[in-house]
């Protein structure tokens, strides 16, 4: 068996807050990434995702735990670690006093590319990300989405083996989201680039990831492939119903049914119903709606979406059995 590209063992980070109290941002997490996989790290705001990335990318010292990249401890060999890493940070950290082109070329030069190679690749990436026209413009004049595109281009300039994307598509329009994924998947396929992704858009991990970790309050609540995670929710198939207005009697009636394990009210109109059985569920559910004075607008049966898995796992934190793909 080959060595994993990234190994994280019992990683912890405790911050001192301004009032002197302590805040455990990352609480004893362990996981690993194989070369060439796409790993999604999902969690609500403040879960500790960026903190985890900062520690792995040598920007932040862990309180305890070990991180190894290609078998080498990043604490003893941070330079080797950084050589393999590319980062799209959550915030804009572009060089404001340089042009778009210079941002890319300097970055390439820091990573040992020759000027010629760096300029050539910079031009290619600027074209791909629709920035050729702004090649000689200073980054301080860029719109949010343009800056985001340039950050992505910069992170892949030196063809990293391990790419960290901290909410990379925030602020990007759908066309550039596709272009980003096009690039990332191409790097992933052609150069076995391993991707560590955090995002709040569930369709991205659903489409692209090999493994997903659901992370909350510094702890990994669940980790596995999406089919594996599906087994953590009460039912693999879920009934999604939309009514004009969810009423208390409707919920009560649904709750009394022996074939229904759990009901998740998503908003005032939408319900996710987790059944006990996979047999003829719709046929059993439909009459309940018909008996109630509500207008059923839509009903369908489908596999649990990552969204539902995420909501379920984060709302039932203690019951969850944490899976690790060891």
């Amino acid at each position: 068996m080959t060595k994993p590209l990234l190994e994280v063992q019992n990683l912890r980070k405790v911050f001192k807050k301004a009032d002197g109290s302590q805040h455990v941002a990352v609480d004893d997490i362990s996981f690993h990434l194989e070369t060439g996989e796409i790993f999604s790290f999902l969690g609500p705001n403040g879960a500790g995702k960026s903190t985890t990335i900062n520690m792995i990318t040598t920007q932040l010292t862990p309180t305890s735990g070990t991180i190894k990249i290609a078998g080498r401890d990043i604490r003893t060999d941070p330079i080797n670690a950084r050589r393999k890493i590319g980062i799209v940070a959550q915030h804009n950290n572009l060089d404001r006093g340089l042009t778009a082109f210079e941002n890319l070329v300097y970055h390439g030069r820091y990573f040992g590319m020759t000027t010629q190679a760096a300029e050539q690749r910079a031009n290619e990436l600027l074209a791909d990300f629709g920035l050729s026209e702004w090649r000689q413009d200073y980054v301080k004049s860029f719109s949010g989405g343009m800056a985001q595109r340039l950050k992505i281009a910069r992170a892949i300039m030196h063809r990293p083996q391990l790419l960290f994307l901290d909410e990379p598509t925030t602020g990007l329009d759908p066309a550039y989201r596709e272009i980003l994924w096009d690039h990332v998947l191409r790097l992933n396929r052609q150069q076995q680039t391993t991707v560590f992704l955090t995002t709040h858009y569930m369709e991205e991990p659903e489409r692209f990831s090999d493994h997903v970790a659901i992370y909350q309050q510094g702890k990994i609540r669940a980790l596995g492939t999406i089919p594996e995670l599906r087994q953590l929710v009460p039912a693999a198939s879920i009934v999604y119903a939309t009514v004009d207005a969810v009423t208390a009697p409707l919920l009560q009636e649904l709750n009394q049914q022996p074939f229904i394990k759990e009901i998740l009210q998503k908003d005032e109109k939408n319900l996710a119903i987790f059944p006990n059985t996979n047999d003829q569920i719709l046929q059993q559910v439909l009459p309940i709606f018909e008996k109630q004075p509500v207008k059923l607008e839509n009903i369908r049966l489908s596999f649990a979406s990552l969204d539902d898995i995420f909501v379920h796992v984060t709302e039932h934190p203690t019951e969850m059995e944490v899976k690790t793909h060891a």
């Binding site: 990318t57 040598t58 920007q59 330079i79 080797n80 950084r82 050589r83 890493i85 980062i87 940070a89 915030h91 950290n93 572009l94 060089d95 404001r96 006093g97 300097y106 970055h107 820091y110 990573f111 040992g112 910069r154």
Partner: peptide, 12 residues
């Protein structure tokens, strides 16, 4: 600006 992050990330 945190511009320096890019340089601190260089493999040196």
């Amino acid at each position: 600006s945190r511009e320096i992050e890019d340089r601190l990330q260089a493999p040196v």
